[in-house]
Design a protein around this nucleic acid. Structure first.
Lengths: 214, 214
DNA sequence: TATCTTGTTATACGGTTGTGTAATTCAACG
DNA sequence: CGTTGAATTACACAACCGTATAACAAGATA
């Protein structure tokens, strides 16, 4: 006699998006083990069975969710380059600061990212996603460095990109995991100084805070 | 009629050590979800019930295991400073290289470390362990930097330590997760160059490879 | 309004999880 | 050598996991 739960039919894209978002939400809140099939479905407002209708397995959903997360993080970084200054040094400075500031640097984002590290090492497909996004970010950085008014060969340029990427990643990590251990703006300031020192360029002076939101 | 499994009584310390080691082993191999009570006990050569005899809960064991892991990683870093050269610049150079080389930099170690990041954010006690070890490492680094023959104030010294720590952590991370993306020694070389650039010291020239194992 | 497709729910199943409790057997002690 | 205490095993239990399958109903089509 009990009537079935009423529902609405949604587009495949919408449902997949909702399920992926719900999965990432739960991983961010409670770690990988909190993102169970039932919890994900509940968060997305559907019943558990629907997950297997849109994803061949939970592992499939996990992979897709990781893909989505990495896309988002790379897009957040790239967004800074839109509507920025034209001066090459200023562009690099803004990019560096953005990479170690919210929303890119964020405790939740780091927790989310870390949750997948082990799977990245194990799963070929996930490792491919990771490599692609890592190189994408580094190439963005390398492009900005190459545009600087200084003369270096290709070999040196690559080393510079790796080194600067290292500083950024390290500060991103520490600032996100232990935000209370640093004063506001301290990480950004240190990032500018050290990347500038590696490239022998004054990034502190070139940095132009965002003026698009007055 | 079935006889019970024979066993030997061991000291509390030995049993706790075995269980912790087994737990870390399993997390390294298969992620946090692989370290179940039964799997840990099996790996340690005991039955599952024994875990609850030495640890009040599985969460308790997890915390202790994380503590042990961090102690080990810090100890590995500090070990480099034993039996090293006396010259301050050379000591720093050796420390930097060791921090981004095996066994400190290692895919398994990173996977292990990442598995606990989420819990660190959530659990107060684990966050305390993390903070302690992070500051311990950074202070070691700061001590090495302070010994360099150059004049800087305390404020600058702290910033230098944070920055250098950032480079090291970032390169440690990338070199460990994507070891095949770099040539042998490339990460170490870049680490020396960039830390040297930040501190305005020639670390490449000062680096003295270990001569204790000819 | 009647029909059909399929998105969605409902339910069942075997396996696994962490935990609680009682039964054993080891090893030290008198 | 018998006794005793506790380290260890054995077992039970409820909750939860991911998956499979069948029944239903929503909404487009005619």
């Amino acid at each position: 006699m009990a009537s079935r739960r009423p529902y609405r039919r949604e587009s495949e894209e919408r449902r997949r998006d909702d399920l992926i978002a719900a999965a990432l939400d739960l991983v961010a809140e409670g770690g990988l083990h909190a993102a169970t099939v039932r919890a994900i479905a509940d968060r997305a407002g559907v019943t558990p069975g629907l997950i297997r209708h849109y994803f061949s397995s939970k592992e499939d959903l996990t992979r897709v969710a990781y893909h989505r997360l990495m896309e988002q993080m790379t897009a957040d970084s790239a967004a800074v380059l839109q509507d920025g200054p034209e001066d090459a040094t200023a562009r690099l400075a803004n990019f560096v600061v953005a990479s170690v500031s919210p929303p890119v640097a964020d405790p939740v984002a780091v927790g989310l990212w870390a949750a997948f590290v082990h799977d990245v090492r194990r799963d070929t497909e996930m490792r491919h996603v990771h490599t692609t996004n890592y190189l994408s970010f580094r190439n963005m950085l390398q492009g900005l460095i190459a545009a600087l008014p200084r003369a270096v060969n290709d070999r040196q340029l690559l080393c510079d990109a790796i080194a600067c990427n290292g500083v950024i990643d390290g500060l991103w990590l520490e600032g996100s995991i232990l935000p209370e251990a640093f004063e506001p703006g301290e990480i950004a300031s240190i990032a500018l100084t050290s990347v500038g020192a590696i490239l022998n360029v004054n990034l502190v002076a070139a940095y132009q805070p965002d003026r698009t939101t007055p």
